[in-house]
Amino acid sequence: MSRRSSTRRKALMTVLAWAVGLLLFFPILWTVLTSFKTEAVAIADPPVWFNFDWTLENYATVQERSNYGRHFWNSVVVSVGSTLLGVIIAVPAAWAMAFVPGKRTRDILMWMLSTKMLPPVGVLIPIYLIFRNLGLLDTRIGLVIVLMLINLPIIVWMLYTYFKEIPGEILEASRMDGAGLREEILYVLTPMAVPGIASTLLLNVILAWNEAFWTLNLTAAKAAPLTAFIASYSSPEGLFYAKLSAASTMAIAPIMILGWFSQKQLVRGLTFGAVK
């Protein structure tokens, strides 16, 4: 087990790894720093690093001018709502595939995955028209439905791989103990799968939070989540670095924290269990 690693080698690796890590992280760091600057300092030449008058003014302005809070709330509702709805639909399906596998289970799983590979532009027009006709354009419920559907295959897959790790004998024991299907899932399977279900929730909230095709195409002012709201800064008149930074910082901070918690599960979820 022990590798001969001299302190010098370790020091060198430390410098190298930190340099690369900081380089990758730098755009985020710079955004966060800029969000505390005044607009003038934000575009100062030469750039100012840390010694400036820190201000929270940008955060206040962003909220005041554009009702940031509503877009934030839209993001929360849409990402959490679509994920919860997806999990409710996926738990029974994953139970069935993990514990009562049939001849076609494998095909169904693969087919579900294939729907995830459908490029969104392939169905953009019909969805847009259906939404327009049903009055779902620019509504949160519409987004919840679409995001639930695009993430459903991932949710089913993740739950399936977690359920597979639960020994079938335990579920059989509950059946012998007189539990019906409902009790088996409610009292035995679900509590045992809590860690797996939690990671599934976490990853899918992240994916839905950052989704930037449907959220951009199906919303306007009212139901726009943060992805779409931030996009409005792309117009030239939105060119205020400090405010853009403040809005961006608030948009990515919550999800970054969730993301750091779910690194391990992320790998499994995003590779459909192919890498663990």
Binding site: F25, W209, A212
Partner: peptide
């Protein structure tokens, strides 16, 4: 630090 960029939404 390394994984962080993956969590940044595309528009940001």
């Amino acid at each position: 630090l390394t994984i962080a960029p993956f969590f940044v939404m595309p528009t940001v």
